[in-house]
Nucleic acid binder design. Sequence first.
RNA 1: GGGGGCGUAGCUCAGUUUGGUUAGAGCACUCGACUGUCACUCGAGAGGUCGCGGGUUCGAGCCCCGUCGCUCCCGCCA
Length: 594
Amino acid sequence: MTATSYRTTLCGDLRPGHVGQRVTLGGWVHRSRDLGGLVFLDLRDRAGMVQVKVDPAVADAATVQVAEKVGVESVVLVEGDVVARPADGVNPELATGAIEVLARSLRVVGPAATPVLPVARGKGTPLPAEELRLRHRYLDLRRPELQQNLLLRHRLLQATRRYLSDRAFLELETPILTKPTPEGARDFLVPSRVHPGEFYALPQSPQIYKQLFMVCGFDRYFQVARCFRDEDLRADRQPEFTQIDIEASFVRQDDILALAEGLVQHLWAEAGIAVPTPFRRMTYAAAMEHYGCDRPDLRYGLEIADATAAFAPLDFGVTRAALAAGGRVRGIVVPGGAAWSRKQVDELEALAKGAGAGGLLRLKRVGSEYEGPVARFLDDAARAALALPDGSLWLGVAGPDRASSPALDRVRQECAARLGLADPARREFLVVVDFPMFERDPDTGALAAVHHPFTSPNPDDYAARPDDPASWRAVAYDVVLNGTELGGGSIRTSDPAVQSRMFALLGIGDVAEQERRFGFLLEGLRAGAPPHGGIAFGFDRIAMLLAGAPSLRDVIAFPKTTAARALFEGAPSTVPPEDLEALHVRVAAEPPGR
RNA sequence: GGGGGCGUAGCUCAGUUUGGUUAGAGCACUCGACUGUCACUCGAGAGGUCGCGGGUUCGAGCCCCGUCGCUCCCGCCA
């Protein structure tokens, strides 16, 4: 299937079964070993590598001369015979290691300049600096590791399409040039030439379009959607990224979650990993209570427990003040933590403070002794209530949950890292449900959507407490693996009146303003909308996890740096003044001279 | 926007602590030798804007100030 008029076989596909065949190969010279008569070339293509042997007894003089001179990374065509290697010449590290190709002729069709980065690296040799790898991406992507990553990415994409298409989902496309959205991340803007002063935005997600597909009656939609957000980058965040975007009609939460679990199972299976379903479910409230975050890593315990009852009666200023202010005392028990030094625990306190806690309460139990600043305040009842095992360390935060949860989350994660509790081979999938509908801006008190403005509030909450939106749960859910969010979604508001109220709660009370910004959605909902909902998965992140790659950049062919530059192509770049003029754009700040 | 780390040969790094002769090593590269290597081996050679700019000093890879790039993190990312 990969045979062409140039070649018969891929290098990496050759096996002992090919012995005796005359083959023609095309590939890149990975390495060469000139023994001064015999020349060995490792020839590489996307399937792998095979050893080519050039023997003056078989090949003509010209071929021998070419073999001696050809530089690494040059593209050559080899015609020769597949032969078994001598018993003591087998290379067990190579899939093709039992055979080699005895060359009859060798031709360089794409001579390579000396590569500025090595493609063939010795074992244990460090990678070149990432800046150079990105600048010379055409070389870096020749590395078998990155080729494997992108090959896996391809397979995951195909598996996604197969899975969803088999379940009657239609792959429908949505515009890349679209309308700026007022909420969420910063938009990438594209000036309009035809309409002076007006701009398109690149989509942060195809959210409204996919809901309109439901309004149209397409019933089940998916897309491998490119999304764009103009925010600062991280190792696991690129300005342009790929989502598996899904929406379906006449569904409830459980319909979407069952589909999502099946898709995850299917994708992990494509990577050779069996994943049992359904996934564990946990409410947002329970996740925050026991783990302090909405995407807990369940590979280890160290669960947060309420210790308010133990501290309430004590004459201890720190906890007394916190409780009087309506807060609680919560903490985790770290087995073996009593052995940690003052400095080690101080480092944990710094993390807790960084996450918003006033401080970190600490209590060690060694034998029957209790140590630490808290110890002398404890009475027998408090000791009994804490039930601290011998040799362990209790770390607590007194205060409101909004401070203690993130602080204990941070401390819990650091303790787990120190103790090596997170088994990298384990996979703890989790579905978090019942997210709050809104969160308050701590400064302004304004409501903001936790998921997005199109999410349906929990119907019971909406009916029971119509005037207390801050207490509403949303019909929104996340899929989490080992503390990483894989995807999230919600059931949407399909009632235009409810949607309009949501906008009002989010500060867009003016009906005309609503129509201007979201008219195309509201009109659609008024035209007869089925109940609908969906989910979106971060595809790059999934590919990264399944490839075992440390960075998103290792599963994206041409990624951006953390400064949002494309080093290979050289984007972004300045443009000629006449181009700007045509777009009716004037640049206020000239870029630094380069 | 803020903080940490890094920047010396094509690549990976040492040298910076304590400023002082001609800035080193491995790999890659060039030339030569070698018929079973597979990170071949051996010999010889070439290769430097010490990121960039300024300052201190008799003298700066090394000290100071600024700046650029990469990276990790905080803010940000509905």
